[in-house]
Design a binder for these strands. Structure first.
Length: 759
DNA sequence: GTAGGGTTAG
């Protein structure tokens, strides 16, 4: 006997030792040669093929079998599941049942995983029924897979009821009839509608799971997230029931139930289980930790998070990618972005999620440029950004108001086929509106299939920032009409909208409806918005009383907003009172010092101005210079007041001088009252014309083709005289000019501004 | 058979 024949003989005796495609084929050939390819031996060969993931070879042989044995079925089903061909796995399972074969415990984990991945709870429940009838719910792996299925599928807010399977459990028995069941006995039909699924054709199973998928999604979106949440305890209940009935539990069982609790927001239970796990002599591993860490991110508990980090280090699993990304996230959410960086750069391996955790972390900590830079590095490192990556970086573009980068990302989103993702679409709406293009924002919003409270809030805020207060308010009403419950952020948006157009009565109505209708507490932001509204509307005393009696401690910025309203409405007396409030709460508030200096100066009170300037200097404070910037052909051009450093400075001044002549012909008179230096009138005019927003607008006009929209951003509030001047410039040059200042957008067109001079 | 990252906020 040759050595190869001998080898084959041993392989037949122990097929699990086959490790290569060649050996598998030899085994297969040997059976054919010796004419011993029975159903049993074919099944062995199939299982060998599937163990090596040779699906094609396995199927070719499988198809020749008239009545495949259980081993053949379960090998194929497991292989389909391994290759993510879940619907084919389920179809095979249904066929197997119809053929009368009785599944053994090895097949259920794969089948349940496929049900989970196909989000087919109905089939999953019927499989559970089958498991119970066969008494296989005692199997460890099957039990684990069941828990996982219920945790995943009932966490999505599916409306299908649970409990049927559990109701049957007391009658559980191993039913010998069931073993030879051809799939059409009363056992299969009788107990519940879902059982019928298993007797129907493969096609109907397929379409059934698609229907269910659609239904689940509709439930998730239309039923709003509140409904989805209300079904969660049900889901975790099923998980717990399976867990408690399992006679033997291992780390995976504990990890699964812990993850279930953690994802259902039942943090106490999750942590309790971790402790209980320890008293059962099982040590938390990487899976446990990465399920538990997000709890401390959400509750911003660095101390606990660090304890977990320490434990991971002691166990030598701190470089695990899963734990790593959870740690990055936990530190970022605790405002310790440097620790996030440290963890990230110490990772031995980085996948798209670890990259994204840090990108998102940068954004959450206001490090927008770093976020964009890391995103670029990620792409360079050939890690393809997925939908989550796009929704994480997009806000960086929004906050930096960098339209060209935002548009570029939008391009990638479209090419990636992610346009319908609700997170991305909402981020795009926000990005376009923050970058000054409210029309593009609205277009994306209108094209969305479903709107949730976040997308509504983004578009409402967008219109609010662009001065379309009435539109924003009617969108808010439309949102409510469509059954989307506004949350606290939505109220911030609608109150901001009211504030920007002076809708005082409406704002009071919304403010009061928060507690009375929606059971939401008014928080600082809401008080601040109302205070701001009153101030802007010139109801300064009312605003002062309102802030003094707020149920939340006012911050310095609430007072300093009122201070700027005092400045706009030229009420020096109240301003002094308000300024003292600001200085007490926030003695470092430079804006307040500057505002008061300016108010004293514009009232000609140079002595007080000097006194205040001295106070500032003692504190080591320096005035933040006003600056404006404009983005042209991917390059940002920045200007400060009186800036002559730009290479095109002569052409800019030339343009401003020539346009000035025309402006004066049309009736423009420079209003120098806003110039707060103790200098003569002519000098004041010069200072005014050198304002950064004017320089940026001028540069934009001379650098672009006729008719191009000009978009300028300014770091502080636009100056009154520039506001008038830019209105004239828009008319004379026939340009749409959009200026974003620190609180809103001004759209200048045909000589008027979208803010209606109320800002 | 188990795990991590995302959108709106004066």
């Amino acid at each position: 006997m040759s050595s190869s024949k001998h080898l084959i003989k041993t392989l037949i005796k122990n097929p699990t030792r086959i490790k290569s495609k060649y050996q598998a084929k030899q085994l297969h050939a040997q059976f054919i040669r010796t004419q011993s390819l029975s159903h049993t031996s074919a099944a062995i060969v199939i299982s060998v093929y599937t163990n090596l993931k040779l699906l094609h070879e396995a199927l070719l042989l499988f198809q020749t079998l008239e009545s495949p044995p259980v081993l053949a079925w379960k090998s194929v089903i497991r292989c389909f599941t391994d290759q993510s061909l879940f619907s084919r796995a389920l179809a095979s399972f249904v066929e197997m049942r119809a053929s009368g074969r009785c599944p053994d415990h090895n097949v259920f984990p794969s089948v349940l995983k496929s049900c989970t991945m196909m989000t087919d709870l109905r089939l999953g429940e019927s499989v559970h029924g089958c498991i119970v009838r066969l008494g296989m719910d005692c199997d460890l792996y099957t039990g684990n897979a069941l828990m996982n299925m219920y945790a995943k599928l009932l966490g999505m807010g599916s409306k299908i009821s649970v409990g049927k399977v559990f109701d049957e459990m007391p009658h559980r028995k191993f039913d010998s009839e069931e073993v030879d069941d051809n799939g059409k006995s009363s056992h299969f039909d009788g107990s519940s509608g879902s059982y019928r699924v298993a007797t129907e054709s493969v096609e109907s199973v397929m379409s059934c799971s698609e229907d269910l998928q659609a239904e689940t999604c509709v439930g998730y979106y239309n039923g709003s997230r509140v409904n989805a949440l209300s079904t969660l305890p049900l889901g975790i209940d099923s998980v717990r029931k399976v867990f408690e009935l399992m006679p033997r539990k291992d780390v995976v069982s504990w990890n699964t139930i812990i993850a279930g609790y953690a994802q259902s927001g039942m943090y106490e239970d999750a942590l309790r289980m971790v402790r209980e796990m320890g008293s059962n002599d099982l040590k938390p591993d990487a899976f446990t930790l990465s399920s538990v860490l997000p709890i401390f991110s959400e509750n911003v508990d660095v101390t606990k998070g660090k304890e977990i980090h320490g434990y991971a280090i002691r166990k030598g699993i701190d470089a695990d990618v899963y734990i790593g990304s959870s740690l990055v996230d936990m530190y970022a959410k605790s405002a310790r972005i440097e620790d996030s960086e440290r963890v990230f750069f110490h990772l031995s391996r980085r996948d798209s999620i670890s990259w994204n955790s840090l990108v998102a972390g940068y954004v959450q900590n206001g490090r927008y440029n770093e976020a964009l830079e890391l995103f670029r590095q990620m792409v360079t490192a050939k890690v393809r950004p997925g939908p989550v990556a796009f929704s994480s970086v997009m806000p960086a573009c929004a906050h930096l108001s960098t339209l060209h980068l935002g548009k570029q990302l939008h391009g990638y989103v479209v090419r990636g086929g992610y346009s319908d993702n609700i997170f991305i679409a909402s981020a795009l709406v926000d990005m376009y509106s923050k970058c000054g293009n409210i029309k593009a924002a609205r277009k994306i919003f209108d094209r969305m299939n479903v709107h949730d409270e976040v997308s509504w809030t983004a578009i409402i805020m967008g219109h609010a920032l662009h001065g379309h207060g009435h539109e924003a308010v009617s969108l808010f009403e439309e949102m409510k009409r469509q059954g989307v419950k506004p949350n606290q952020v939505a109220f911030v948006a609608v109150l901001t909208a009211c504030s920007h157009v002076g809708l005082v009565d409406e704002a009071w109505g919304y403010f009061n409806s928060m507690t009375k209708v929606y059971g939401l507490n008014q928080e600082l932001e809401h008080y601040a918005a109302v205070a701001d509204l009153l101030g802007r509307a010139g109801k300064l005393e009312e605003a002062y009383d309102f802030i003094s009696n707020m149920r939340v401690e006012p911050t310095g910025s609430v007072w300093s907003n009122l201070l700027s309203s005092c400045s706009v409405h030229k009420n020096l007396e109240l301003a002094e009172k308000v300024a003292e409030k600001v200085f007490t709460i926030d003695s470092e508030n430079m804006g307040a010092y500057v505002l008061m200096c300016n108010m004293y100066a514009s009232n000609g009170k140079w002595k007080e101005t000097a006194k205040l300037r001295l106070r500032m200097r003692k504190k080591g404070m320096r005035k933040k210079p006003a600056c404006s910037w404009i983005e042209l052909k991917d390059k940002t051009h920045g200007f400060v007041s009186g800036d002559r450093s730009h290479p095109n400075t002569d052409r800019i001044n030339e343009f401003l001088n020539s346009v000035m002549e025309q402006m004066e012909k049309e009736g423009y008179v420079a209003d120098t009252s806003g110039v707060l230096h103790d200098v003569d009138e002519e000098h004041k005019r010069e200072l005014l014309f050198g304002h950064s927003e004017r320089l940026a607008v001028a540069f934009g006009i001379i650098s672009t083709e006729a008719g191009t929209t000009i978009r300028v951003t300014k770091n502080i509030r636009i100056c009154e005289d520039c506001h008038v001047a830019i209105k004239y410039i828009s008319k004379i040059t026939e340009r749409e000019i959009i200026v974003r200042d620190n609180s809103r957008f001004h759209h200048f067109n045909h000589g008027s501004c979208s803010c209606g001079d109320y800002w």
